[in-house]
Simulated scan of single mutants.
Amino acid sequence: MNPILLNVPPQIETERLILRAPLQSGDGSIVNAAIKDSFNELKAWLPFAQNIPAVEETEMNLREAHIKFLKRESFRFLIFHKNTNDFIGTASLQGINWDIPKCEIGYWIHTKFGGNGYMIEAVKELTNFGLNQIQFKRIEIRCESANIKSRSIPEKLGFELEGILKNEDLSADGRKLTNTCIYAIT
């Protein structure tokens, strides 16, 4: 089947969260504010967070993500709390290879919502969705070996640590070589 024909809902719900595609005008200002609030933590791990983007840059990035969603190239979801509508973070099915089929899950959380299990809940739901609805045969989570918080998510969700690739990537700031953990579930 051609992936463009897949019915992928623009919104997925969990017990406490709503995961929705970035399709509403103005999402950029909400996400940008979270990037600013979480900048010091995000900067250590994510190349996109080396400088605080302008609101317009964040809005453009989200609109491009929506286009990729429609083209079935990746599926980025914005995470909101069901009861308060607070923006929690993002989680994506990305790096899709439809021939296998497989993908990678990427995520980041607004610092003030960390430690509440929200990202575990969101990633668990995306994993279930990817395996059961889209029928991915493999889902990976890759992260820097020193990023203990990020590593805890696949570990708690039963992903297998398949290996640690030495000197495989550059740090978020591009200044040193880092080791990459590869977790997977099939």
Rank of each mutant, 00 (worst) to 15 (best):
K68W: 05
A21C: 13
L157T: 04
I185Q: 04
R175N: 14
S150F: 12
I12K: 00
G115Y: 09
R16E: 14
R151A: 15
N116F: 15
L62Q: 07
K43I: 06
D169K: 14
K43S: 13
W98N: 00
Y183E: 08
C103G: 02
L126F: 00
L170S: 14
T58I: 05
C143S: 15
R72H: 11
Q11C: 08
N132Y: 01
D27R: 05
I109T: 15
K124F: 01
Q94L: 07
E121I: 07
F129P: 01
S152D: 14
R138V: 07
K124D: 01
I185D: 08
L19E: 04
E104V: 00
N32T: 03
G163A: 12
E140F: 02
K102V: 01
G106V: 12
K149G: 07
G95N: 04
L46R: 11
L19K: 00
S92Y: 03
E104W: 00
M60F: 12
K166R: 15
P22L: 12
S74D: 10
I88T: 10
D37T: 10
S74H: 04
F80H: 12
N97E: 15
E13Q: 15
H110D: 14
D99G: 06
V55H: 03
E160I: 13
I153L: 14
G106E: 08
L19Q: 03
T127I: 04
I134L: 02
I35E: 06
K43G: 06
A33V: 05
